[in-house]
Computed example of a mutant assay.
Amino acid sequence: MAKLIVSYANRDGAKFDRAYYEATHMALLDEHWAATGFLGWEVLYPADSGQPFAAMAILRFKDQPSIDASLGAPGTAAVVGDVPNFTDLEPTLFRTSN
């Protein structure tokens, strides 16, 4: 299994719609990446406002080539294009080696 971590570094005044993120945005991942080895997701939110991130998502894939295939899939444009609908924060991607 391979993982891709998507983090949203927080800043004062930032917007992050948790309900939209989980109900709508993550459904886009399920829809567009299921055929390319995407296995599922988990979202972590900070325990308090003093944390450096608004959210972090752990995306699980079959293997590293599945991450590449998902990021290169035609539906990825819809996934990326949806980001402004729930946040004004810039997502950062981090690949794990395990």
Rank of each mutant, 00 (worst) to 15 (best):
P84R: 07
G72C: 10
A54P: 02
A55C: 05
F53G: 00
A47R: 05
H32F: 12
W41V: 00
D12Q: 14
M56K: 10
F53K: 06
R11N: 09
S66P: 08
Y21Q: 12
L29P: 00
M26I: 13
G72N: 13
A69V: 05
G40L: 04
T76L: 03
V83G: 03
A27F: 12
S66V: 10
D12Y: 03
T36F: 08
L71N: 09
S49A: 15
T87E: 03
Y20W: 11
E90P: 04
A73P: 10
A34M: 04
M26Y: 01
W41T: 08
Y45A: 02
E31M: 14
G50W: 04
R18L: 05
M26F: 13
F53N: 05
E31H: 14
D88W: 10
G13A: 12
D63H: 09
L89I: 15
A27P: 12
A54W: 02
G75R: 03
A57Q: 00
Y20L: 12
A23R: 10
L29M: 05
K15I: 15
G75D: 07
Y21I: 05
D82N: 09
A27M: 11
Q51H: 10
A14S: 15
K15A: 15
V43R: 01
E22N: 13
D88A: 00
D30L: 06
D63N: 11
V83K: 02
A55H: 08
G81Y: 07
A54V: 01
G72L: 11
K15G: 14
A34C: 12
Y45W: 12
A73D: 10
P74L: 08
A14E: 06
P46H: 11
P52N: 09
A47G: 15
T76E: 14
W33T: 07
G50M: 02
N85I: 14
F16H: 07
P52K: 03
V43K: 00
P46T: 03
A54R: 00
L59A: 04
F86P: 03
A27S: 09
W41Y: 14
L59F: 13
G81R: 06
A69Q: 01
Q51S: 11
S49D: 15
Q64W: 04
F86D: 06
Y21T: 08
W33K: 01
R60C: 02
D12A: 15
A35V: 06
T87N: 11
T87P: 01
I67S: 02
R18I: 15
K62M: 09
L59I: 01
S70W: 04
A35N: 08
F61T: 05
D30I: 12
S66N: 08
R60E: 15
H32I: 13
D68H: 02
T76W: 11
A77C: 13
R18C: 06
P74F: 09
V43S: 06
A69E: 06
T76P: 00
V79A: 04
M56Y: 07
V79R: 01
D48I: 01
P52M: 03
A34V: 04
I67M: 04
S70T: 13
L59S: 00
S49C: 11
M56C: 11
H25C: 14
A47N: 10
E90M: 10
G37Q: 09
A47M: 06
D68V: 06
P46W: 13
K62G: 01
G40C: 05
